[in-house]
Structure formats: structure tokens, C-alpha cells
């Protein structure tokens, strides 16, 4: 295998090991290049247009993509579903054709329905970047998670071979979990999913990871504990009896964290439900928690993705 780049980034599955590592390397270089600079801007995408098409509110992800595109000197158009023709019932296809007519080079799409980015990719000529679709995938989140793990635990080089990552929470509804399981496996890490059985998809047995219902037994030996957001509303649909019971069985607090290794990192894709899946003490632990670092790293990773997808065809030899 070698580095290979398609036109779109729709799923973590679009990346093989070499490509993912090249992307992380590029993100690291960009990160280094941007730190301490007065002018936080590179001319790479001058004259290119990147559209942020957001059908779901997500200030964090939209801002991160916007910053990434702007730091590469692209023109950025924010097209949010609210207050636009989209909310007036325009179909995704018609919106796509409009964007196509406007000559956008890349569309960053966040959508509440799984697979919307893949459909979009069939209707437009430019690149499509999945910024989170329904309960399917969120590949750039997985990339920035991998970037953070690599920087903290692998000296910022190579892949994640041998790393043990425990992902805890609402796997069933989590696009972050799906993207992470795939990418982490591609990068050579072992993944353990921990959740109550109600929050694991039927068919999870086929995923390339371990599955456990017991957090306490999964923690020893973990290099990373990634907590997923659990919406309180799931309670009303009987996925679990109460927030308190969930928190007791699957929440990460200081006592549980004490069972982990010295170097174990705590991650969370945000936004957090403090006191539900993660205690405030753990979330703010300066030594273990890399939650704000994840956000910072998001910009470099998304710059690397934009650069990679908008480069010409193929891959240079050197």
C-alpha cells in the first residue's frame, strides 16, 4: 500500500495507513509552521472557495473548518441551514447544484442524516468533506484524536501500533466512535468499546475491536480513555434507567481514573455532559485530560485534509 487520495473524505475507511500517517505528518508540519507566527496564513488555497454547509448547529466544528480554510487563504462561504433556502425546503440535491454553479472547490458538510455527504458527492464535481453525518462518521474528528494521541504517546511520529484505546459511551448513536474504530485500527491501535448493551449496535461483533459491558475491567492497560457524549434524552427511550445509574456504571471519575496507568490520557470529542459521562475533576485534570488540546489540533488536521484533497491528482514520489 501507499499514499492514495481520493477526491473526497467521507469516511475513515477512505484512508489507508500510509495516507493517514502522511496526513498526520502534514498536520504536524502545519502546526509547527503556524506556531509563533505573526501571520497565521499560508497562500496555498488562494482563489479557492470552500463552502461550509451545515445542516446541524456545530459552532466548534464549523469554526475549526473555517479557520483551517482561511489559514490556507481560501475564500470561505458559510451556508447554514437556518435562515437559508435550505430551511425553506430546498432539497440537498438542489442546494448541491447551486453550490456547483457557484464554483465551489470543496464542500464541508455537516448533516443530521447518515450518508448525506456520500449523496452530495454524487451531485457535485468538487471535493466533499464529511464534517459529521447522522450516526455514521466524523472522520476529521477521528484524525484529530489520532493526532493528539500520536503527539502525546508516540512522539508525534509514525502510526499508533500497540496503543490500547478504550472508547466509552453511546456507541450506537456515535459517529465519532465509528470513525475512530476504523481509523485507530488502520493505524494499528487496539480498540475496546465499552457501553451498556443497549447503546451498542446490533452487528458490533463484526467490528474490528473488543466489546465490553464493564468499564472497570477495561481500564487497566488503557493508554487512552475516550468518553463519548451521552444525551440525557436517551434515558426517556429506556436505553438506561437514570443518569445516576449510567454515571455510576459508565462515567469516568477520579476514582476510576486512578485505576489507569500513569500515562493514560482522557479524551472527549465534546460537548461534555459534566457529571454524566465525565466528572468535572477528570475533565479538568491538567495532566491527563487533553480535551482542549483536541480542539486546538483540529485546525491543523483540517488544514492538512483540505490541502490533501485540493492538491492535484495523484501523489508526488517525494
Amino acid at each position: 500500500m501507499s499514499v492514495s487520495i481520493g477526491r473526497h473524505l467521507l469516511s475513515s475507511q477512505d484512508l489507508n495507513n500510509e495516507t493517514a500517517v502522511a496526513l498526520l505528518d502534514t498536520a504536524a508540519r502545519l502546526d509547527a509552521a503556524m506556531t509563533g507566527r505573526e501571520v497565521k496564513k499560508l497562500p496555498t488555497l488562494r482563489g479557492r472557495t470552500v463552502v461550509n454547509l451545515f445542516y446541524e448547529d456545530s459552532t466548534r466544528t464549523r469554526t475549526s473548518f473555517e479557520l483551517a480554510a482561511k489559514r490556507l487563504s481560501a475564500d470561505v462561504v458559510n451556508f447554514s441551514a437556518k435562515g437559508s433556502s435550505v430551511s425553506k425546503g430546498e432539497s440537498l440535491k438542489d442546494t448541491a447544484l447551486t453550490l456547483q454553479a457557484m464554483g465551489s472547490d470543496a464542500v464541508v458538510i455537516r448533516h443530521h442524516l447518515s450518508g448525506a455527504p456520500r449523496r452530495l458527492a454524487t451531485w457535485i464535481e468538487g471535493s466533499v468533506i464529511n464534517a459529521g453525518d447522522g450516526t455514521h462518521e466524523h472522520p476529521t474528528q477521528a484524525l484529530l484524536d489520532a493526532f493528539t494521541m500520536r503527539r502525546r504517546l508516540r512522539d508525534g511520529e509514525g502510526d499508533l501500533k500497540g496503543l490500547r484505546v478504550v472508547v466509552v459511551g453511546d456507541v450506537l448513536h456515535s459517529r465519532v466512535a465509528r470513525s475512530n474504530v476504523r481509523l485507530l485500527r488502520t493505524l494499528g491501535a487496539e480498540v475496546v468499546l465499552v457501553a451498556p448493551p443497549t447503546l451498542l449496535p446490533v452487528g458490533v461483533a463484526e467490528w474490528p475491536c473488543e466489546v465490553s459491558y464493564d468499564l472497570d475491567s477495561a481500564l487497566p492497560g488503557a493508554d487512552v480513555v475516550m468518553m463519548l457524549r451521552v444525551q440525557r434524552e436517551r434515558m426517556t427511550a429506556s436505553y438506561f434507567p437514570s443518569a445516576r445509574e449510567y454515571s455510576r456504571r459508565y462515567g469516568l471519575d477520579a476514582a476510576r481514573l486512578a485505576k489507569c496507568e500513569e500515562h493514560t490520557l482522557v479524551m472527549h470529542p465534546g460537548p461534555m455532559n459534566r457529571g454524566m459521562e465525565i466528572s468535572a475533576e477528570v475533565a479538568d485534570d491538567p495532566r491527563r485530560s487533553v480535551i482542549t488540546e483536541q480542539v486546538t489540533n483540529g485546525v491543523s488536521v483540517r488544514m492538512a485534509v483540505l490541502y490533501m484533497l485540493l492538491s492535484g491528482e495523484g501523489v508526488a514520489n517525494e
Binding site: G115, G134, T135, E137, R178, V202, G203
Partner: peptide
């Protein structure tokens, strides 16, 4: 529900139809 509940629905993140 969107798709037969099983391996494919789990992979695609589509709500399963058991």
C-alpha cells in the same frame, strides 16, 4: 428505522429495522 438491523446498518449508521 431505515435499513435491516444488522452488520450493514451498524456500519452505515442507519437506524436498524429488526
Amino acid at each position: 428505522a431505515q435499513l435491516n438491523e444488522g452488520v450493514v446498518s451498524a456500519r452505515l449508521g442507519l437506524t436498524g429495522w429488526p
